[in-house]
């Protein structure tokens, strides 16, 4: 599977204070839902990912549960964070 541009962009540099919508798989709709839940920044979601032991499956489940993401979206997001962690953590 080729990675999306958004994924490349995100995983190519430190995330800094990037908004949550910069995460791959998180678009306008999911982004707003996450913001409602208090996850304003990408690092908030990263935190959740880390608490879940960097387990992609768990983050996918969490995203589905929290904001009603579908498998594709949640999977993209988890993969994105995983790659970021591999590169920068």
């Amino acid at each position: 599977m080729s990675t999306s541009q958004k994924m490349k962009d995100f995983t190519s540099e430190p995330m800094g204070d990037k908004p949550v919508k910069t995460l791959a798989g998180i678009g306008e709709v999911l982004g707003n839902k996450l913001i409602e839940e208090g996850f304003n920044y990408a690092y908030n979601v990263l935190g959740q990912f880390l608490v879940l032991g960097k387990n992609e499956d768990l983050l996918v489940m969490w995203l589905k549960d929290k904001v009603g993401a579908n498998s594709k979206q949640a999977g993209d997001c988890a993969k994105c964070l995983k790659e970021w962690c591999d590169a920068f953590l």
Binding site: K6, P19, K21, G27, E28, V29, L30, G31, G68, Q73
Partner: peptide, 12 residues
Amino acid sequence: WSMMTATNETIP
């Protein structure tokens, strides 16, 4: 990009 994906994004 996010805006673009947002327009393409299907309702979850």
